[in-house]
Design a binder for these strands. Structure first.
Length: 809
DNA sequence: CCGAATTTAATTTTT
DNA sequence: TTAAATTCGG
């Protein structure tokens, strides 16, 4: 291809160029926030193709989200189209008509992008499995066909539930399906199979989990279905056991690139190794000729350990892949330490915060921009006041700045549940906004229903989907009928579909449900005949109409039904979009993209709306203005991280991610009390993270920093008020208190120098007795996590809260 | 078998 | 507060 008049190094700094020019062998790019890592990645791919003449089909690039993949493809397309146009027409890209630009882009798309494997681990290995899953030989004889369905979390949970309730008849109170599903997922992400889990089981409980796991795997196979974890685990096993398959993919993917390497888990790491070094120990792998593995990541932004990600994989990359003992540091590591995104104030705050972590790879992040404004901290009475304060800030900025756009703003929070209050305030003030994340589009009931029909058309063994739609819309097929059929299927060891579609079985039933079943069977036969002749979007439409789903919604005639109809129309649009993006569109492909899509993928980036999202989904994005809300102990950091230093460090990294999203201005908020689920107010104390940011970078209501704050006054007031109303507090408790406590209780306020430790029992004048589960901070900054009977753990400041220690003996 | 009414549990974070 | 699960009357 004739693209040689320019190279892809223009406008890159020294280390970025070094990364882009890397050709053979392993390279770790440690890339801090805002240091231009996506740029390095895309430019390197372009460089490989153009300068090193690498065939696009030999490149595999793994991203963390679909959105990142799409962005990379887009940027690559523009990059290459630009070079192609400029070398052919000898005039600058910007002088081209947009129709010309598009022509070049579509040329690049067909010649190059179509060949590249760019996507998430899940999407790419699902694609690989469509080729090779039938070659997989399971030790227990389990197998899958290339028409497998992909189960999302809900589907797989319903399967686990069924096993726990029906097959094993366990008490779901003792064996919570959600927790067990989670344990299974964890095992899968570590590459552990049921037999090993059973063998290493240290408790009866784990044995039971292994048993469920075992049945669950069998059920998945019987349904010809895979869960998210299988999309990675099955390829690992397949590549390990089948030399030919492994050899093929090893030869094919000569250049492997991984983005967000700090968030890879064990299974993903195995996959990389298998492909890169063909199953050999990668540190002994020598044949790097025209091959490379190129990973980009930042250990400080590792925030997915709950999904079994382990940033030590990143930290040991050089040990794993680089066998050139002499020049390790210079040859297989490049650091991008210049931040082009944030003001130096924001950056310094983030740097100081993250320095509190112990487990880190040495790295600094240097500012390239001016100081900018101070960070503003706002203390609010409760979560409603917090939301109002956010909106108030934004309105002030909006009024004072002509160039301001609502799209410049992101409001970030720790949990999805926090979005609602903010939304209410935004609605009240008529500010346009969009919530990303939360409930996935494809998780909506009506969408899942239609998708279930489509899955069934391709994969009749998929009983989870079958059960979902057998009586949706209503066909008079009730619980008892379904149970009967289900039992029969289990007994005969055949998929439920075989029974449901068996005329004999139907005839053995009474008239009412038989009619419905015949109807259903006819419908599916009719639809099945259409699969090959119609595009996915047409099939969606067809299912919606012929199943009677739409007419039922019309008949219902409520606002909710109307909304559902609109969503279904969106599904048709999604299918159309999919067809546009993929020349080789088919129903399997559409279903896979639906299963692996996330809500964040569909975010419309250039609309003039405030973006609301969790800190997790903000990773990789940037905004001129960031509002970070809910900075309170127990919320952020989450109370579940308080008893575990490494989780707390992960929360801190999450905070680091949040701070570094901001380019110009950063606003922090915390509330003094918060309603959790519409019920009781919970007192909250400011997040310890706030105290880790140097106070000279912040203006506003500094937390816990001496002086008499409003918060203290209020809490003292509450303390005395409770004591007044509860005047039998002392006398009621005194009989159970030891003498030393009897002395202590003569203090009327908080006790100075009191020491608290985990396990201590305390009595609270309002919550009753509880036990300390965690102590964090000390002296001025101390706070306690206390579990009271029948309540979620509370985070309290012992110097302010009306609590007293009880001696155990 | 269906739908309405009532109760219950749930809040990290996501491919 | 809300969604999902359970119960009960027709």
């Amino acid at each position: 291809m004739n693209l040689n008049n320019t190279n892809f190094l223009n406008g890159l700094n020294k280390n970025q160029s070094k990364a882009v020019q890397h050709f053979e062998g392993p390279l770790l790019v440690v890339a801090g926030a805002g240091s231009g890592k996506t740029r390095a990645l895309t430019h390197r791919i372009a460089h490989l193709i153009v300068e090193h003449n690498v065939d696009p089909s030999e490149i595999i690039a793994v991203t963390f989200t679909n959105k990142a993949a799409r962005e990379m493809k887009d940027r690559l397309e523009i990059l290459l189209a630009k070079r192609m146009a400029e070398s052919q027409l000898l005039k600058p890209w910007s002088s081209l008509e947009s129709i010309e630009k598009n022509e070049f882009r579509s040329k690049i798309y067909r010649q190059i992008n179509q060949e590249l494997w760019i996507g998430t681990f899940h999407a790419l290995f699902a694609k690989l499995l469509r080729y090779d899953i039938e070659k997989y030989k399971d030790k227990e004889g389990l197998s899958w066909t290339r028409f497998f369905s992909i189960y999302d979390e809900k589907d797989s949970l319903s399967l686990v539930k069924e096993i726990i309730l029906q097959d094993l008849q366990l008490d779901p109170k003792r064996f919570d399906p959600k927790k067990i599903r989670w344990s299974i997922s964890n095992a899968k992400n570590k590459g552990i199979l049921p037999e090993q889990l059973e063998r290493d089981a240290e408790s009866q409980r784990i044995k039971v989990i292994a048993q469920v796991y075992n049945l669950y795997r069998k059920a998945l196979s019987a349904n010809n279905s895979l869960d998210f974890d299988d999309l990675l685990l099955i390829p690992v096993q397949l590549l390990k056991q089948n030399h030919q398959v492994r050899e093929y993919w090893h030869q094919r993917f000569k250049h492997v690139l991984v983005d967000e390497y700090q968030d890879t888990n064990w299974t993903q790491y195995e996959l990389i190794k298998l492909i890169v070094s063909n199953g050999k120990n990668p540190s002994e792998f020598k044949n790097w000729e025209k091959r490379s593995v190129f990973v980009v990541g930042d250990a400080d932004q590792s925030i997915y350990s709950f999904r079994a990600a382990d940033f030590r994989i990143l930290m040991s990359f050089q040990n794993d892949f680089d066998n050139s003992t002499d020049s390790k540091v210079s040859n297989s590591l490049v650091k991008l330490e210049e931040n082009y995104r944030s003001t130096s104030t924001i950056l310094e705050a983030a740097n100081c915060l993250i320095e509190n972590n112990k487990e880190r790879l040495d790295k600094v992040l240097r500012a390239t921009r001016g100081k900018g404004e101070l960070i503003k901290l706002t203390k609010c009475d409760d979560e409603i006041a917090e939301a109002e304060a956010v909106v108030h800030r934004l309105r002030i900025i909006n009024a004072g700045d002509e160039t301001f756009s609502w799209g410049d703003v992101a409001v970030l929070y720790r949990t999805n549940a926090q979005s609602r209050v903010i939304e209410e305030s935004l609605v009240r003030w008529n500010i346009p906004y969009i919530v990303v994340g939360g409930l996935r589009f494809y998780d909506r009931r009506e969408i899942k229903d239609i998708i279930a029909y489509l899955k069934l058309l391709i994969n009749p063994s998929d009983s989870v989907s079958l059960l979902r739609i057998l009586n949706v819309p209503k066909r008079g097929i009730g619980k008892t009928t379904i149970q009967k059929f289900n039992d029969a299927a289990a007994e005969l060891g055949v998929p439920l579909w075989e029974i449901v579609s068996d005329p004999e079985a139907i005839r053995s039933l009474g008239g009412r449900s038989a009619k419905g079943l015949l109807e259903f069977q006819e419908l599916l036969t009719y639809l099945k005949n259409k699969v090959d002749q119609f595009a996915p979007s047409e099939l969606v439409q067809l299912v919606m109409e012929k199943s009677g789903y739409i007419s039922e919604l019309i008949a219902t005639a409520t606002d909710e039904a109307e909304e559902r109809r609109r969503n279904l129309q969106e599904l048709v649009n999604a299918a159309l979009q999919y067809q546009e993006d993929n020349e080789t569109a088919n129903l399997e492909g559409f279903l896979a993209s639906a299963a692996l899509a996330s809500d964040a993928d569909n975010k419309d980036t250039n609309s003039d709306r405030v973006t609301l999202m969790t800190l997790h989904s903000s990773k990789g994005l940037e905004f001129p203005i960031v509002c970070l809300v809910g900075l309170e102990q127990g919320l952020f950091p989450s109370y579940r991280s308080l008893d575990d230093p490494s989780s707390l460090e992960e929360e801190r990294r999450l905070c680091y991610v949040g701070l570094t999203r901001a380019k110009e201005r950063l606003f922090l908020f915390h509330a003094l009390e918060r309603r959790l689920w519409g019920g009781m107010r919970e007192p909250s104390i400011a997040s310890n993270f706030l105290t880790e940011i140097p106070s000279d970078l912040i203006e506003g209501d500094l937390p816990l920093s001496g002086g008499t704050s409003l918060r203290r006054e209020r809490n003292f007031e509450r303390l005395t008020r409770i004591d007044r109303h509860n005047n039998n507090f002392d006398s009621r408790q005194s009989s159970t208190l030891s003498p030393s406590n009897a002395v202590r209780k003569t203090f009327s306020g908080p006790m100075p120098g009191q020491s608290w430790s985990i396990g201590d029992k305390v009595v609270h004048s309002f919550f009753g007795t509880g036990q300390i589960t965690h102590v964090f901070g000390k002296e001025e900054k101390i706070s306690l996590a206390i579990k009271f009977d029948g309540m979620s753990p509370k985070i309290l400041d012992p110097r302010l809260a009306p609590i007293k220690l009880i001696k155990d003996n």
